[in-house]
Simulated assay, not measured.
Amino acid sequence: MRTPSEHTRLQLELYLNMHTKTAWPQLAGLRIRHRGQFAYDRGTANRWGFALHDAGSDRYQDALLPTGSGTGTPEDALDCACRLHLATLDS
């Protein structure tokens, strides 16, 4: 798996921060870290693999989006993660 270019990383951060402001205003901010294989693309800059951190095992595990796909836009992955983690805060 390729490590994304600096341009791709900056573009990803821009898109996700813009999306967060409109779709998830309850978030104070979004910090994106790029760590080797954990910031990678699978095909194109518009389709990304998605992994969630499992605190119990302290590992990242590949995840599927609600569509059942293993890849999607960065915004799709952010929406999925926020629905999973923020839903418990709203209850």
Rank of each mutant, 00 (worst) to 15 (best):
M1E: 10
M1D: 10
R2W: 07
R2E: 09
T3W: 04
E6I: 15
E6L: 14
E6V: 15
T8F: 04
Q11Y: 09
Q11F: 01
L14Q: 09
Y15T: 14
L16W: 04
N17I: 01
N17Q: 09
M18C: 06
H19T: 00
H19Q: 02
H19P: 00
T20A: 13
T20C: 08
T20V: 12
T20M: 13
T20W: 00
K21R: 08
K21I: 02
K21C: 01
K21W: 00
K21S: 05
T22A: 12
A23H: 04
W24L: 12
P25Q: 08
P25V: 12
P25D: 01
Q26K: 09
L27V: 02
A28R: 08
L30F: 04
R31Q: 14
R31C: 03
R31K: 12
I32P: 00
I32R: 05
H34S: 12
H34I: 14
Q37W: 11
F38T: 13
Y40D: 10
Y40C: 09
D41P: 09
R42S: 09
G43N: 07
G43H: 11
G43T: 07
T44D: 10
N46R: 15
R47Q: 12
W48G: 01
W48I: 10
G49P: 05
F50T: 11
F50A: 08
A51L: 07
L52Y: 11
D54N: 11
A55H: 05
A55P: 02
A55G: 01
G56N: 12
G56S: 15
G56E: 07
S57A: 09
D58N: 12
Y60Q: 10
Q61I: 14
Q61D: 06
Q61G: 13
D62Y: 15
A63K: 03
L64R: 14
L64E: 13
L65D: 00
T67S: 15
T67Q: 07
T67H: 07
G68M: 11
G68K: 12
S69W: 01
G70F: 08
G70D: 07
T71S: 05
T71F: 03
T71Q: 09
G72K: 06
T73D: 03
P74L: 04
P74A: 02
E75M: 06
D76G: 04
D76P: 01
A77W: 00
A77D: 00
A77L: 05
A77G: 07
A77P: 00
L78F: 04
C80V: 08
C80S: 06
C80L: 05
A81P: 01
C82H: 05
C82A: 14
R83L: 07
H85M: 11
L86D: 02
A87G: 05
A87M: 10
A87I: 13
T88C: 14
T88D: 13
L89P: 01
L89R: 11
D90I: 14
D90E: 13
